[in-house]
Nucleic acid binder design. Structure first.
Lengths: 198, 198
DNA sequence: GTCTATAGGTGGATAGAC
DNA sequence: GTCTATCCACCTATAGAC
């Protein structure tokens, strides 16, 4: 039945790990099959066996990133009640990315959007949509519980929150300055009446 | 004395115009000499005559973009007194970029930062530094005149402003949604006690 | 599932005629 | 200042042996 890798076995995972790191640091147009093969000490042909085309690889990269992110959000929902805490935990997800000297995979791909195969563009928007939905839900809940200040549309504020975090990562990376990202994140939280620490 | 184009003659300007458009839409790694040559109906060799290496072209792109931007800021300073108006005019500069279906040149290059030749990286930071200095000055002045609400460091708030505008452009472009950018910009202004309209 | 080998194309860049 | 012609490195991708 399985005459071809489905991207779930160990080899495929290692390839995705390596490609993800490269994509987050150099962009989708900034790395090649040769780069992946070199880091894993295999041949380009071997990588092509698991991911026939770069478009396939790109779609799987976004899908896995999305799944991992969604899992992290589900864990927050399962372990945290306070909406302010949820927002802090959300920002910590971004913090960990830039702390590892990476850009958000989807923020990176957003820059290259017009050069991407259409399936990747669709998957990319799905990622941002999911972030927006989750954040809007937390903000709405926070407004009702009185733990978060949201004067305007929760949905619009959710979008703006994603925007500032992506932008802060983008610019901070040019300065190699993690503190710069944290400062912007702190401001974004403060506007919601949420302190950096509980 | 001038045996070689200095990037200031008409041909060079047309090349820079074309390259700028391509770079803002596809990124520095997303266009080639062939793309420029095709749009201008000349040969690649002719483009290389004006800009021998792509690194040369990239540095000149950022330098010209920076100069144009600085000129626009100087014009704002020369024609507007009210700090809230200055901030609205500043945001209008970004608005015009995305309205032309482009990303900020330097925001785009920031994504590709680690793949850029070092001279381009230096020029890139200089652009963001200049933005930050101008904005911080306007915010500080606005705070003193009472026309802008700035509770924290003007410098840090200036950075955060650049971050949210760059991030809003980045994400809005994936949705082809100018309104999404405008909404984020409006929020950013509102936090400073500045309305969208005077 | 990984390898060697290679195809077919495009990248940036240069030489030299006009 | 623009052209033709070309170089060489690299790209994505495939064929076929092991």
């Amino acid at each position: 039945m399985k005459s071809r890798s489905n991207g779930q076995n160990p080899s495929s995972q290692r390839i995705l790990d390596t490609a993800e790191q490269l994509a987050q640091r150099r962009g989708f147009n900034g790395f090649s099959y040769a780069d992946i093969a070199e880091q894993l000490a295999v041949t380009k042909a071997s990588v092509h066996y698991h991911f026939p085309s770069k478009a396939d690889l790109g779609v799987r990269l976004i899908a896995r990133y999305h799944e991992t992110f969604a899992g992290a959000l589900a864990k927050i929902d399962a372990t945290v009640d306070d909406e302010a805490d949820k927002l802090r935990r959300y920002i910590a997800l971004y913090d960990e990315v830039i702390a590892h000297d990476r850009m958000c995979l989807c923020g990176m791909f957003a820059a290259e959007y017009s050069t991407l195969p259409e399936p990747m563009q669709v998957a990319l928007r799905a990622f941002f949509d999911a972030n927006e939905v989750w954040l809007a839900s937390v903000l709405e809940s926070g407004r009702q519980s009185g733990r978060v200040i949201v004067r305007e549309s929760a949905r619009a504020r959710a979008r703006m929150l994603v925007d500032v975090l992506e932008g802060a990562m983008l610019v901070a990376r040019a300065y190699g300055d993690l503190a710069r990202f944290r400062s912007a994140a702190e401001f974004a939280l403060a506007e919601l009446g949420v302190g950096v620490r509980a």
